[in-house]
């Protein structure tokens, strides 16, 4: 029996940031990530009748997005041979460089690090979702997108002191929420 309903009217507000964050960590290009998220929403809209209500909308959209990301890499890889760069060490100048490349990279990410980052990202997104819309918006602009105080004030037509009050409330709520779920 299907327990969950599908309602695409709020998809962008509810899931665009979550899907974008999921994508950017996998494709590392804002424009491509944005396109993939947009394609996901459109594909979701077209295949709405396939939604059985067994998972949440977000999980269902993520499953579509995963396929979009795989398709994206398939497309890139089909051109791989054309742009392949071969490295050789025959030139005297580069002699010995191979040794550096074989040394373990202390900054290399392990699977555990990636998983922890993903879980942390999920926890933060969930807490952000619980904030009132205006607070979440100001917090994202200031903290995640790193906009200047003046830019945000001009864009949202608020005073600087108003912005700091909103930031304070958002930070307190975020810290409380993450304390329950992460700290």
């Amino acid at each position: 029996m299907s327990s969950r309903q599908i309602n695409p009217n709020n998809w962008i507000d509810l899931y665009s940031d979550y899907l974008f964050n999921y994508t950017i960590s996998r494709v590392s290009d804002r424009v491509i990530a944005q396109d993939l998220v947009q394609d996901t929403f459109l594909a979701g809209l077209k295949s709405m009748k396939n939604f059985k209500g067994e998972a949440t909308e977000r999980t269902w959209l993520i499953s579509i997005l995963k396929r979009k990301i795989i398709d994206h890499y398939r497309k890139i890889n089909s051109n791989k041979g054309k742009a392949e760069v071969r490295i050789n060490y025959k030139e005297s100048e580069s002699e010995g460089d191979w040794l550096e490349e074989r040394v373990a990279d202390p900054f290399d990410k392990t699977a555990e690090d990636t998983l922890q980052n993903q879980e942390l990202g999920d926890a933060i997104q969930n807490c952000l979702g619980k904030l009132p819309a205006k607070q979440a918006n100001v917090f994202k602009m200031k903290t995640i997108l790193g906009h200047e105080t003046e830019t945000i004030c001009n864009e949202l037509n608020i005073t600087a002191s108003n912005l700091w009050v909103i930031i304070h409330r958002a930070r307190t709520a975020m810290a409380d929420c993450l304390k329950e779920n992460w700290f």
């Binding site: 964050n21 942390l120 933060i124 997104q125 930070r171 810290a175 992460w182 700290f183």
Partner: peptide
């Protein structure tokens, strides 16, 4: 202390979002 922890978590998570 909590504020500092929050900043560190946000930095560690490398979270990103769409601009308006």
């Amino acid at each position: 202390s909590n504020n500092g922890k929050l900043t560190k978590l946000l930095k560690d998570s490398k979270i990103d979002c769409l601009d308006d």
